[in-house]
Design a protein around this nucleic acid. Structure first.
Lengths: 114, 114
DNA sequence: ATCATAACTATCCTTTTTGTAACTACTATC
DNA sequence: GATAGTAGTTACAAAAAGGATAGTTATGAT
C-alpha cells in the first residue's frame, strides 16, 4: 500500500526526480532497452536506436557514469568497442517493464477509440 | 519472463517512447505524484510542486488531454478550480511505484559510497 | 596510395523546454 | 478605491536538448 500524506509525497517526488535525472530524456531508456538484447558496438547501437553519433556518445557516457552501462575496448583489427548493461542496470527492470506495459496498453487504448 | 530478441525489443522501444511521450519530461510524473494526496487547486499545485504558473498550465492541459487528470471548476466566491487524478491515471501506478523505489534506492547507493 | 570501417569528436544550428516577470479577469474584503 | 486571492495568460529570455554534417584517428584491405 502506498501512503499519500504530504511527507511521503515529498519523498516520492524527490525519488521520481532522481530517477528522471538518471534515465529521463529521450534516449536513456531506449538505449538500455536496446542493450537488453546483448552487447553492441557503437555504430550498431546508433543504427538500431536511430540516434546520431554525437548524442549517442553523450548518452553512453552518462549511462556509464551512472553505472548502468559498461564500455569495453576490444583488441580487434579495427579497434571495436562493446557496450553492455551492467548487473546494476537490472535494478531498473521494474521501471522498464512497467513503462513497456503501460506504453503498450496506452497505445491499444488510443488505437481502439479512433 | 522478458524476451530479448530483436523484434520484441523493437516493440519495447516503441512502448517506452509512447510512455515517455505522455509522462516524460520534468514535471508530469511529479504532478501526478503530488495529486496522489488528493485534489488540488492551481496555486496550491504550483506551490507544492515548485513550478511556475506558465509551465503548470501547460502540463495540466497535456495531462488532461491524455486523460490522466481532470479539471473541475467550482462555483466558489473567487472561482476555484480543482485538479484531480482520473481513474485511468491509476494504470500508471506500477510506473510510479517502480520509479519511486528505484530513485530511492539509487539515492541510498550514491549516498553510502561518498 | 586509396578506400573502407569503427568509433568518435567538433561545429554549427534548430527545436524544445523551462523560467521570469508582468499583466488580465473576477470577486471579496479593508 | 486600494488591496488581496484565485486562475490563469502573454511576452520575452535563457538554457537544455537534439540533430546534421563533416572531420579525426587508427587499422586493414585492395
Amino acid at each position: 500500500m502506498i501512503k499519500h500524506d504530504v511527507e511521503s509525497c515529498a519523498k516520492a517526488r524527490l525519488a521520481i526526480r532522481d530517477t528522471l535525472d538518471v534515465v529521463g530524456g529521450k534516449w536513456k531508456l531506449v538505449l538500455i532497452s536496446v542493450l537488453r538484447s546483448g552487447k553492441k558496438g557503437f555504430n550498431e547501437l546508433a543504427r538500431e536506436a536511430g540516434i546520431s553519433p554525437r548524442i549517442l556518445s553523450k548518452e553512453l557516457q552518462e549511462l556509464e557514469m551512472n553505472g548502468l552501462v559498461s564500455r569495453e575496448v576490444c583488441n580487434t583489427k579495427p579497434v571495436t568497442v562493446q557496450y553492455q548493461l551492467t548487473p546494476y542496470s537490472e535494478t531498473l527492470n521494474d521501471v522498464l517493464v512497467a513503462m513497456e506495459q503501460w506504453g503498450d496498453r496506452h497505445r491499444q487504448k488510443i488505437i481502439s477509440r479512433e
